[in-house]
């Protein structure tokens, strides 16, 4: 079943541009990450093969690959504390829309060596390109807020950048390890893979996977949302029961 899925995935991996000879085939170790009660993160392996379409001439240079993994997107409010008399209060804020809740950028060497700034902007490579100045409020642009957003998310292990995350195991075959942390947000993830050669794009492919809760976790969550009153009454009864049970266990008199 898993092999079949992988094969299907290989078939749908789209070739990029008709002028190029290279085709990128990517395969992901799994497309469903299920969260159980002992979930504390998971590693996914991605394999990529650059098919040169029967072109047997020697490669003019080497390939570079950049893998961008993006979690579900949402709006983020960044607030800044400032002095207000003797107090430090949240006085200033900026709102960013469509920010991925998880972002991992893996490459085989540092991004500036792979492509120049304009190409990196065009293909949205790197944290800066993925977290743009999209401000939903009327306040003026302030790069400090964007820097803070990136810094905070990096500290939480939700934004990552690794210039050694992609490894070429053969001149045209590479492997990348996607490390999902335990607090990986639930939802759909998309993966964008671009292959460069001598600073020019030669192939591009995409893939997706999903992070979801399994039976027990999902049942609890569904119950809590869809039958809130019953869930609340149940919780209240449970707390009374546990409280009573403890007093019985500990009763000495």
């Amino acid at each position: 079943m898993k092999i079949l899925r992988t094969l299907l995935l290989c078939l749908i991996a789209a070739p990029f541009g008709s002028a190029q000879a290279e085709t990128l085939i990517i395969s992901l170790s799994r497309e469903n990450v299920l969260i159980q009660s002992n979930f504390a993160g998971e590693r996914l392996s991605l394999f990529g093969v650059i098919d040169r379409g029967g072109d047997t001439r020697a490669l003019p240079g080497t390939y570079d690959a950049v893998v961008t993994v993006r979690g579900p997107r949402g709006a983020v409010t960044v607030r800044r504390k400032d002095r207000f008399g003797p107090l430090w209060l949240n006085l200033d804020e900026r709102r960013y829309i469509a920010i991925p809740a998880f972002l991992e950028i893996l490459s085989n060497r540092s991004l500036p060596l792979i492509a120049d700034a304009s190409l990196r902007d065009e293909y949205r490579l790197g944290l800066d390109a993925q977290v743009p100045q999209q401000i939903a409020s009327r306040a003026a642009n302030d790069p400090r807020f964007r820097d803070a957003l990136q810094r905070l998310r990096k500290e939480q292990d939700l934004f990552r950048e690794s210039a050694s995350g992609v490894k070429f195991i053969a001149p045209n075959v590479f492997q990348a390890a996607i490390e999902l942390p335990g607090k990986a947000p639930i939802g759909n993830y998309d993966i964008d893979v671009v292959v460069f050669s001598n600073g020019a794009l030669v192939a591009r492919g995409t893939s997706t996977f999903r992070v979801a809760k399994t039976a027990v976790e999902q049942t609890v969550a569904t119950l809590a949302v869809e039958h809130g009153v019953l869930f609340g009454i149940g919780m209240a009864m449970l707390s009374l029961f546990i409280g009573w049970l403890a007093s019985v266990i500990f009763r000495r008199d």
Binding site: R73, V76, P86, W88, R95, A98
Partner: peptide, 20 residues
Amino acid sequence: TDILTTPKEPFSATLTETVR
């Protein structure tokens, strides 16, 4: 001390809405 001393990290980021 939270509101009277200079914070180590003056910024905070909160997810306000998610699209799944």
